[in-house]
Simulated assay, not measured.
Amino acid sequence: MTTPSFLTTSTGRKIAYHRTEGTEPGIVFLGGFKSDMDGTKAAWLEEWAKSQGRAFLRFDYSGHGQSSEKFVDGAIGDWAADAQEVIETLTSGPQVLVGSSMGGWISLLMTQRIPQRVCGLVGIAAAPDFTEDGFWAGFTEEQRAALKADGQIALPSDYDEPYIITKRLIEDGRDQLVLRTPLPLPFPVRFLQGTADTSVSVATAVKLLEHAEGADMRLTLVDGADHSFSAPDCLELIANSILEVTARA
């Protein structure tokens, strides 16, 4: 594992990143909820981008990976602010955003906040509005009451530790929703979704496709692919989608 560089944001957070120089438009990888930039997709795409001579950037949101702050203190708005500052500071010109799971939501926020810096989008099991439509909608009345009373609850996860879901995460998420208002995406967009994904449903992918507005959007379903979307054929599909988006941008 190579040592990352760090960007100190305007809020004082220290964001770890790896940047590869190359031709533009560059590629920015945005990871998922409680994941980090050393995951399979990010590392594989970095090597692929190098083979293409393409500029590439991967980073850890605050509270994730090697960046500063605690995960439980963060929220979608914080991580979107991190992403925006990273893109504006560490890249030049329009970029192709590759967003995985929560990174898909944050990528969509970037398309609305800094549209001049986005020329294409590849969403991998994109999870827009999941704090509201996933967590909050799925909570029992007892869980909602506990969240309000205690400020957080623990949910089981597929990983070593449970997810700690905070009241702030839910409340801040309501200020970041993208499926309740128009979502123009005036550039090539490719959404990729596995049918065996137990975290983000095919119905969510279809809802996003139907809600967004754009002249060049496609959704590809991969039979049997899970949420990680990291099998060799899935990685090749991501790369091919980036090439297609870049060629059509």
Rank of each mutant, 00 (worst) to 15 (best):
C234F: 00
D197Q: 01
H227N: 06
A215N: 15
E210F: 11
A239R: 09
Q193I: 08
E236N: 07
A215Y: 14
D233C: 11
A231C: 06
C234T: 00
L185F: 07
L183G: 09
L183N: 08
F187R: 13
I238K: 02
L237P: 00
D226M: 04
L192R: 01
S199K: 12
D233S: 12
A196F: 00
S201M: 10
Q193G: 02
A203F: 13
T195Y: 01
T181L: 11
C234K: 03
I242N: 06
C234Q: 14
V245M: 14
L219W: 08
T204S: 13
R180A: 14
P188C: 10
V202Q: 11
S199G: 07
D233T: 12
S199P: 04
A231T: 07
S241A: 11
P186S: 06
L192A: 03
Q193T: 06
V222W: 04
S199R: 14
V222K: 08
T204D: 13
D226N: 12
L209E: 09
A239F: 05
L221E: 03
P184G: 05
I238H: 02
A205M: 10
S230N: 13
H211R: 13
A215I: 08
L243D: 13
R180S: 13
L209C: 08
D216H: 12
A205V: 07
D216P: 07
G224D: 00
T181C: 04
P182C: 07
L208K: 14
L183E: 08
P186Q: 11
R180Y: 13
G194A: 02
H211G: 09
L243K: 15
M217A: 06
I238M: 03
D233F: 11
T198Q: 14
L235T: 03
H211K: 12
T195V: 01
D226H: 03
G224L: 02
M217Q: 12
V206R: 15
K207P: 07
L192W: 04
S228P: 03
S230V: 01
P184H: 06
L237A: 00
S228L: 11
V222C: 05
L183I: 11
S230R: 08
D197I: 00
D197S: 01
L237K: 01
G194L: 06
C234P: 04
A215H: 14
L183Y: 10
V200H: 04
V189L: 10
F229M: 07
L221H: 02
T204E: 10
R180I: 10
N240H: 09
F229I: 05
N240A: 07
S228R: 11
A231M: 10
V206G: 03
P184L: 04
T220K: 04
A205Q: 06
A212C: 15
L219K: 06
A225M: 01
E213F: 11
